[in-house]
Computed example of a mutant assay.
Amino acid sequence: MMKKTITALAVCGVFLVTAAPAQAAPKDPVQALKAKLVPGHGVRFTETAEWSDGTDTLHAYENKGVLQFARKGLNYDLTITAWDDTEERVISTGGRTYYKGGLLAELLPKGKRWLSVKGSGAMPGVYLQVLNPAEPTTLSALLKKGKREGSKVTGTITFAALTKVSPWFAGSGLSAWAAATPISYTLTLAPSGLPTRLYSSFRAKGVDRLYSDFEGSIINVETRYTGWGGKVSIKAPSPRTVTDRYAS
């Protein structure tokens, strides 16, 4: 388990049920989302990621951050906290993605805290939500492939289908795993039509050599979204603290 969590960014209960009052069906989610797509604005989220071998389930990561709508695609600022309290941060903006924390602290040149990688807007690790409902094309696909009952949409989408509609997923290392891998999901919508919660689960298949230990593992992620359309600011780290190479 420790090895699995350490390499997560190397790629680049009991419920009390009570009767609830009937609610009107949510508005058109895609149109509601498009109305919020103003550059410089975005949405905040928190999420919990779990690892399972099908028998045992372990709490792996707590993630939080903000997605910012850009003129093209998404920018983001994420903080990722592992089960052992190791913290990593990832910022994606201006066509580059910046990584900080974890093992990088020991691999970068003296005085540098951030590793800069070309490319932006893609999911930066395994223990993050693979489905990004802040993308209109992805949200539309989840609605079309799922069954909607009131405020909830449940369904399944494959890695191959997701790659076609989601830059967030297509730009990640996971898009090279088995194309037929199914992702099961439950999406909860607010009366406004905007997503408030998203649960996804998939079993890793056809993983690359870097993630060989993940083969057959199940990754579950539950994400909660708040503040749709709020103004957010994402800035790249100071150039003095950034490098694009490892220490020699």
Rank of each mutant, 00 (worst) to 15 (best):
S172P: 12
I183H: 09
A122G: 04
S52A: 14
V126E: 14
T7C: 01
R44K: 13
F15H: 04
T138M: 04
L128P: 08
F45D: 07
A176G: 12
E47K: 01
I91P: 10
G101E: 00
I218P: 04
K205V: 08
T18E: 14
A10C: 11
K3R: 11
I80E: 08
K152Y: 03
K72L: 15
E135C: 06
T138Y: 01
L139Q: 00
F15E: 09
L143G: 01
T5C: 03
A204V: 10
T243G: 10
A180E: 15
L174W: 07
T48S: 13
V17T: 14
P39F: 10
G230Y: 00
Q129K: 01
L74C: 08
L198Y: 05
P167V: 00
E149N: 12
K147E: 14
L143W: 08
A160T: 05
F214W: 15
L58H: 11
L187Y: 13
L174F: 12
E47F: 07
P133K: 10
G229S: 00
W177H: 06
S151W: 00
L139M: 13
A49S: 15
A141R: 10
S184G: 08
L78D: 01
L104C: 07
T5K: 00
K205G: 14
L33V: 09
T18W: 08
I91N: 05
T241E: 15
A10G: 12
P26F: 11
I91T: 13
A49D: 05
P136D: 04
L108F: 05
E62I: 01
S92R: 09
R240H: 09
L210Q: 07
L142E: 04
A190R: 13
T181C: 05
L74W: 06
K231G: 01
R209N: 08
T18C: 07
R203F: 03
I91L: 10
I91G: 06
H59Y: 08
L37E: 15
F169G: 00
E62A: 12
S201D: 09
G111F: 15
L162Q: 10
L187K: 03
T86N: 07
T188R: 03
T57C: 13
T188Y: 04
Y61R: 02
A170P: 07
S92M: 10
A82Y: 06
N220P: 01
A35Y: 03
V117S: 08
S52W: 09
T7P: 01
D208Q: 10
G95T: 10
A180H: 12
A134N: 03
R44Y: 02
V90L: 02
R148T: 12
S52M: 08
S248L: 11
P191H: 10
K72C: 06
T241N: 09
C12Q: 13
G119Y: 03
T55F: 13
V232R: 04
Y211P: 06
A204E: 02
E106A: 15
K145G: 05
M123D: 11
T138I: 06
E215M: 06
D85N: 14
N75I: 02
V43M: 11
H41R: 12
A161L: 07
A236L: 06
V207D: 05
D85H: 09
E135V: 05
L139N: 04
A179M: 06
T158M: 10
N63D: 11
A161F: 04
A179E: 11
P109D: 05
A22N: 05
M1W: 10
V30N: 00
S140A: 05
D213A: 15
S116Y: 00
L107N: 03
T86C: 04
K231S: 02
M2K: 12
D28R: 03
